[in-house]
Simulated assay, not measured.
Amino acid sequence: MRKLFLCAVSLVLAVGCSSGPEQQQAQSAEGFALLQHDATTIEATYSSGGASVRALVVETSKDVVEVTYDFGDPVIGFHIDYNQGVGQFMPSGSPLDAAQAQLLTPLLEGIMKALPQTPDAPRTRVETAAERQTSFMQIVPVGEALTAYEYVSERGWTHISCTCGNQYIGSGYYRTAGRGCGCTGGSGQGCKGRCGQGCGITSTPGCVGTTAYTQDCAKHDYGLGSFSAASDDYTFASNNCSCSGVGTCY
């Protein structure tokens, strides 16, 4: 696992060493910048208030993707093997702090604006990984020491209904969950049970993040389950709900 993480970090450093003046200028600017986007690689940055994150997503072989979020300190990596249905969470360095965590939502919004999806142009593997893992990064705990772990898709997930209502979310719990900004269950943001933080972003057409609604994601939303238990849902669960339009709650 450590070898995989070091390889991911090496990819970040290699791209950084080859950056030209235009890339260096983009990285130092405030806001979002898409530095590279092709069939096997996506590189993007978001900077605000002196904090920055650099996301690098590389398909190193068929359906095997390395994803790295470099905050300087920490660096958080994922190794995702879609062939085997296995993911690895590989953090290094200090805990994620609040200023760094606040970069992730605008980073995801920037990525989704830059990678529009249409019926004629489905997501590539690296685009899917960029969307889903950045969504997952939004729920990584802040201020807590992070440890590496592995998660496996074959352990499965259970979809819940897209329609907002009182639903069974597993482990003996019933809670309000489903699509809609008003589907809060009286607790925080709407869209409870969605494997992606909160509801739609009004400035972005279509969906931001996944539209998978599952029991483990619902338990996490209500503080009844860990972020690690929802890892396989965020990475692998199929989208069972839909959304459309600008500012649509989903």
Rank of each mutant, 00 (worst) to 15 (best):
A29K: 15
Y174K: 10
N166R: 10
G72Y: 04
S92I: 15
R179F: 00
F5T: 09
S203H: 01
G245I: 08
Q84D: 10
T202C: 13
W157M: 02
Q167E: 12
V140T: 11
Q88S: 10
T204G: 04
K192Y: 11
S48H: 13
S228N: 11
G185R: 04
Y168E: 06
V140D: 05
E22P: 00
S135Q: 03
S61K: 14
G50M: 13
S52I: 08
V126H: 03
L224M: 06
P106N: 01
S135D: 15
G200F: 02
G182S: 11
P141T: 10
Q25Y: 11
W157L: 11
G165W: 04
N83I: 08
T128G: 12
T40A: 06
S226Q: 06
S47V: 03
C183E: 03
T147L: 11
A145P: 09
F71I: 13
Q88R: 06
D97P: 01
A148L: 06
S171D: 14
T68I: 15
L103E: 00
V67T: 10
Y168L: 07
I80R: 00
E59D: 03
V65H: 12
D120R: 12
A51D: 10
F89A: 09
L4G: 07
Y174Q: 11
S153E: 10
Q24G: 06
I76Y: 03
I160Q: 11
L104K: 03
I169N: 07
F89C: 07
I80W: 02
T40N: 14
N83K: 11
T210F: 01
Q167M: 00
A101N: 04
A237H: 07
T128S: 14
I139Q: 09
S61M: 02
D221R: 05
L35R: 07
Y174P: 01
C162S: 14
G110A: 10
G225K: 11
F227C: 09
V152G: 03
G16A: 14
N239G: 02
I42N: 03
V53D: 05
E127G: 03
Q88G: 00
R125P: 05
A29S: 14
V126L: 12
S94N: 09
G225Y: 11
C217R: 10
Y82D: 08
T235A: 13
G193H: 04
T176E: 13
L96V: 06
H220C: 02
A229R: 07
Y173S: 02
A51L: 03
T211C: 13
G247Y: 05
Q133D: 01
G110P: 02
A237Y: 11
M1Y: 12
T202S: 14
D73M: 05
L107D: 01
V53R: 05
R54I: 04
G93W: 07
P141R: 02
S47N: 12
V58D: 15
S92W: 15
Q84G: 08
G16R: 08
G156S: 05
S94E: 14
K192A: 05
